[in-house]
Amino acid sequence: MKGILLADNGDLAIKPVLERDGIRSGIIIGGSEIQNAYIVLGMNQGELKEDPLIGPNLLRFIRAKATKTAVIRQVRIHLERDGLDYDELKERINIKLKTD
């Protein structure tokens, strides 16, 4: 999935370019699945006006006696609600961690 990329600080990732006709451009477009997953997993329910049910509220699991299965279930539900595949993202993250 391609989309507008964000910089590490959350602002738009921009690489300014001055075209031949004098028009400025530079918004960076690229693969945004991991970025989107990061945003979704950091949300709490009600934070996104367009879809108030999205947001796994992961902070509540810090002191809770939740099982790993319960946390994964919550993550899977909310990623799928945003159109992302948990299993695919999990593999991509693991491959990235092994190569770094």
Rank of each mutant, 00 (worst) to 15 (best):
G26T: 10
K68E: 12
M43T: 00
V71P: 02
E47Y: 07
N94I: 10
L41D: 02
P52E: 13
R92M: 13
I77S: 07
I62F: 12
D82M: 13
A13I: 00
I27Q: 08
V75C: 05
L12T: 04
V71E: 05
L5V: 06
Q74D: 15
I28C: 08
I62M: 10
G10V: 02
G3P: 03
K15L: 13
G42V: 00
K96L: 15
G83Q: 09
S32Y: 06
A37H: 02
N9W: 05
S25H: 13
R92G: 04
R60C: 05
K90R: 15
G22K: 09
G83Y: 06
I28S: 01
I14W: 00
E80C: 09
E47L: 07
I34S: 09
L84F: 04
R81C: 04
D100N: 14
M43E: 02
R63P: 02
K65Y: 09
D87A: 15
I14P: 00
E50I: 10
N9G: 08
N44C: 09
E50H: 08
D87K: 10
V75K: 01
K68I: 08
E80N: 12
L84Q: 02
D21I: 05
Q45C: 08
E47G: 01
K15T: 11
R20Y: 11
I28D: 03
K96D: 12
N9F: 02
R63L: 14
R63W: 15
N36E: 15
G22H: 08
L18P: 05
L5T: 01
N36Q: 15
L48F: 07
P52N: 08
R63V: 10
G42A: 05
I39P: 00
Q35S: 00
K98T: 11
R73F: 09
K65Q: 14
G3Q: 03
L97V: 07
G30V: 06
M43R: 07
K15Q: 13
N94E: 15
L48N: 02
E88L: 12
K90C: 05
I27P: 01
I4L: 13
N44R: 13
M43Y: 02
D100I: 13
I23L: 12
K49T: 11
V71T: 10
R24P: 04
R24I: 15
I54Y: 01
H78A: 06
D21W: 08
T67K: 13
I77H: 11
D8M: 08
K15P: 02
Y86N: 04
I39C: 03
T69M: 11
G30N: 07
Y86Q: 06
G30M: 04
A64V: 03
G42L: 04
R20S: 15
K96Q: 12
R63K: 15
V40F: 00
N57F: 06
L41G: 00
M43W: 04
H78L: 05
N57G: 10
E88P: 02
R24A: 12
N9S: 11
E80P: 01
K98A: 12
L58N: 05
G10Y: 02
P52G: 10
G42W: 01
R73W: 09
A64E: 14
S25E: 07
R76D: 11
K68L: 13
F61M: 07
D11H: 01
Q45T: 14
I4Q: 03
